[in-house]
């Protein structure tokens, strides 16, 4: 190991690892063994949903995540690598779970109009390991995509400002999802299902999804850049809590922005727009 780790940092690392492990274990058991508790939708007719297939498919993003974690560990030390990993799970995991469960329990109908009976958002179909009601590997995907995109932005723009690097990172992630999302929701894969009636779509995917991709990476890059100053001011223990609180504030702000956009788009964009190429 290349960076010294203090006793407090070691305790934070163990705490994050324990929380991640416990949530994944609890969520996976809840999802597979007690699906009625959170009204998990049926996977009937969806490919690759045997436990063996789901486990093997989970291994692919886990491998990519391991490469990025190793890089973060070697270049920034175990504490910061763990903060990036834990922060990604916390930042994206909570937000996506809120989004999925609000849709599942029809909590958008109070502010949206023109829903035509569709009050959902989206939900995920297959995974062996879960993080709440989203696959653990989706959280992990956010971790290594955020890490890679911001790293690439830093390599390409070594003297660029933080905002420029964060924006380039967000743009790369969004560009990646512009192809991945239509592929993954295609009839063969159906890795997740959109049940949203949003009025502006790109490739039949709600525009808010792509806005979310950009905002997630952009805001997380900015928040993570603040970590050294937060630690300097508050110390490791309190600084870790302040960092996660900062993420919570960013996340709340982002959800408000996306919900406000959704409400306005639902009300004023009619007929619905779908920007497609070749009918995708």
């Amino acid at each position: 190991m290349d960076k010294e780790i203090t006793g407090t940092e070691k305790r934070v690392v163990w705490a994050i690892a324990a929380v991640l492990g416990a949530v994944v274990l609890f969520s996976s058991i809840l999802h597979h063994v007690f699906p009625w508790v959170l009204d998990v939708p049926s996977n009937a007719g969806i490919n690759f949903t045997s436990y063996r297939a789901m486990f093997l498919l989970d291994l692919i993003p886990i491998s990519m995540g391991a490469l990025c974690f190793y890089h973060a560990y070697r270049t920034t030390g175990l504490y910061k690598a763990m903060m990036f990993l834990g922060g990604s799970f916390f930042f994206t995991g909570l937000a996506e779970n809120v989004w999925v469960l609000m849709g599942r329990y029809h909590m958008f109908s109070w502010f949206s109009h023109n829903l035509d009976g569709v009050t959902g958002t989206y939900y995920f179909t297959r995974a062996f390991f879960w993080w709440g009601e989203m696959p653990m590997v989706i959280c992990l995907g956010w971790f290594f995509i955020a890490y890679s995109c911001v790293y690439i932005a830093g390599v390409l723009l070594p003297r660029g400002s933080l905002l420029l690097k964060a924006a380039l990172g967000g743009f790369l992630a969004m560009s990646f999802d512009l192809w991945m999302d239509p592929v993954q929701v295609s009839p063969m894969w159906q890795s997740w299902k959109w049940v949203s009636n949003e009025t502006i779509k790109v490739f039949s995917i709600p525009l808010s999804n792509f806005m979310g991709w950009f905002l997630f990476i952009f805001l997380f890059a900015i928040a993570f850049d603040k970590l050294p100053r937060i630690l300097e001011k508050w110390g490791t223990g309190k600084g870790t809590a302040v960092f996660f609180l900062t993420l919570l504030l960013y996340k709340a702000g982002m959800l408000v922005v996306l919900m406000a956009y959704g409400a306005v788009a639902m009300k004023y964009v009619s007929p619905p727009l779908n920007f497609t190429i070749w009918g995708i």
Binding site: H71, F144, V183, Q184, P187, M188, W189, I280
Partner: peptide, 26 residues
């Protein structure tokens, strides 16, 4: 490593999954 991880995931989740899907539009 981070670049290769990102490219690897792009290869799997976009290119290979699109090829296996069989729909040329994808």
């Amino acid at each position: 490593l981070p670049v290769l991880a990102f490219l690897g995931y792009w290869l799997y989740s976009c290119l290979i999954c699109a090829v296996l899907n069989g729909d040329p539009r994808l």
